Computed example of a mutant assay.
Amino acid sequence: MERTLIIIKPDGVARCLTGKIVQRIEDKGLTITKMVKTTLETPKVEAHYAHLKDRPFFSDLVAYMTTGPVILLEVTGENVIQVMRNLAGPTDSCKAPAGTIRGDFGTSVTQNVIHASDSVEAAESELQRFF
């Protein structure tokens, strides 16, 4: 049984999409084992996105992720990382197909409603960071 981190980002929380996103996760047969609503602090966001620190959008991303509450989820299930990546859709909401969370609810590359861990190693590290 795999586990992964999902973050419903500030735009998703502000637009009252939490229930719809949780429903989609549960409809896939996945289990939400932890759920916390919080506002992220800059150092934690910087650590989370450290792999992007040299990118020109890094400071805007950090600022965005600290603008308001997020929902942190630990989700478990068989092949959960790949299932959630497919359910989330591509990072760029404009390129994400209808039926994916980002395709249906995202508005840009940054305001794309959801973060989903991309590997077992990343999931374990991210879950430790946030839980």
Rank of each mutant, 00 (worst) to 15 (best):
T33N: 05
F131S: 08
C16P: 00
I32A: 13
G89S: 11
A96T: 03
M65V: 02
Q111T: 07
Q111Y: 02
G68C: 11
D54C: 12
D118V: 11
G77N: 06
Q128C: 01
M35R: 10
R15S: 05
I101W: 02
T76I: 05
T38K: 14
L87W: 00
F58V: 14
L5F: 07
K53C: 07
A14Y: 06
C94N: 14
K44Y: 01
R85C: 09
A122M: 07
D54N: 15
D60R: 15
T4H: 08
T4N: 05
A96N: 03
E46L: 05
H115R: 13
A116H: 05
E26P: 14
A47D: 08
A14R: 15
G68Y: 10
I114H: 01
L87M: 15
I101R: 07
A123S: 13
V45T: 04
K34D: 06
S125E: 13
A14H: 15
A96S: 13
V13S: 02
I101N: 07
R15D: 11
T33G: 08
K37F: 14
I81S: 00
L72E: 00
K53Y: 03
P97D: 01
I101P: 10
D11V: 07
S117W: 09
V22A: 09
I7R: 01
T66N: 08
R129A: 14
